[in-house]
């Protein structure tokens, strides 16, 4: 059964890569043909998008999956380019695209179209922040994405989970960029971290309820240890976010989230230490101290953990 599942992955990859390849050339053709007429480009994009949604809703054929993906990407590009050239306003263009990102999931049952819609939605939110130079709002967007990822992992709309995961990681990567010194952004990293910790506390509560942990002492220990770990990286929201992803992915047995979260966390930790303005000697001391702390914790909890492993 596993090999069957993996074999059909080849078909999925073929349809996705074929769809993207075809759409790249088709977008090129459309741009060369209608580039001088932004209104025509916009309406053509709208028409293609509407047609794609109809096909996606009415057809169950896997054969059309790749074409639908490519057509949707082409349509969104054309609508964006058309609106941009017509309205000359980035805000209006982004708001329209945001609207389309909301409309697509209402009509589409397809996994890939929903993924594109979620990525477009989050991308538009980020674009609105940067266009209007309200960079402090990035520190609200990150916990919002964390909350959305948590909700779609634990409750409803599982189809959007990976979209929110990818968006969240992308935003965390952005939060880790040291050279981004825009007003309202620098100095408020703790805000992202604190709000992400609130979401993490909610996940911990879910884990405790699922595992049916009754002991008050155990509950306090779990909250204290996890949130203390996150508090240590209060000025590195990327690390807090990475820990949240690992926590949630492990809890829900989501292998893709676990792998991508693990790689992302290693990168964010490395980036954090690289950006620290200390000498190698001080960084060495910090790392050895951290290592000793974790080894001490391992030593203290070793027996307790072995007991649970054997149960």
């Amino acid at each position: 059964m596993e090999s069957v599942h993996k074999e059909s992955l080849g078909i999925k990859l073929l349809s996705i890569s074929g769809g993207i390849l075809a759409s790249m050339f088709f977008i090129g053709f459309l741009f060369m043909t209608v580039f001088d007429s932004p209104k025509v480009m916009g309406f053509l994009g709208l028409f293609i998008l509407a047609g794609t949604l109809v096909v996606d809703r009415t057809s169950t054929s896997r054969v059309l999956d790749g074409a639908c993906i490519g057509a949707t990407l082409a349509a969104i590009t054309m609508i964006g380019a058309g609106l941009g050239n017509t309205t000359k306003s980035d805000n209006i263009t982004t708001l329209f695209l945001l609207g389309f990102a909301i409309i697509i999931p209402m009509f589409s049952r397809g996994y890939m179209l929903n993924l594109i819609a979620v990525l477009l939605f989050n991308g538009c939110l980020f674009a609105l922040i940067t266009i209007n130079k309200q960079f402090s709002l990035v520190h609200l967007l990150a916990p919002l994405l964390a909350a959305a990822y948590t909700y779609t992992s634990l409750y409803k709309f599982r189809i959007w989970r990976i979209g929110f995961l990818i968006s969240f990681i992308a935003l965390l990567g952005f939060l880790g960029i040291e050279s981004f010194n825009k007003p309202g952004y620098v100095g408020f990293e703790w805000l992202s971290s604190i709000l992400i910790m609130v979401v993490a506390a909610f996940i911990l509560n879910h884990i405790i309820r699922t595992l049916q942990i009754e002991s008050q002492q155990s509950k306090v220990l779990i909250y204290a240890m996890t949130l203390l770990l996150m508090l240590l990286s209060a000025f590195a929201p990327a690390i807090c976010g990475g820990l949240l992803i690992l926590l949630l992915s492990f809890h829900t047995n989501h292998r893709f989230g676990l792998i991508i979260g693990f790689i992302a966390l290693i990168y964010f930790v490395g980036q954090y230490y690289y950006n620290l303005h200390f000498s190698l000697l001080i960084k060495s001391a910090i790392m050895v101290a951290t290592g000793v702390l974790f080894l001490t914790a391992w030593f203290i909890f070793k027996n307790t953990l072995k007991r649970y492993e054997q149960n």
């Binding site: 699922t210 829900t252 790392m287 290592g291 974790f294």
Partner: peptide
């Protein structure tokens, strides 16, 4: 959903604490 069980959590935390401790110490 299928959620991770206590034994799996215990194993993961055991390995994570040891692994992170060793890694940070070595890199330090």
């Amino acid at each position: 959903n299928e959620y991770a069980e206590k034994a799996l959590w215990a194993k993961a935390i055991d390995w994570a604490l040891l692994g992170i401790g060793v890694t940070f110490s070595v890199i330090g």
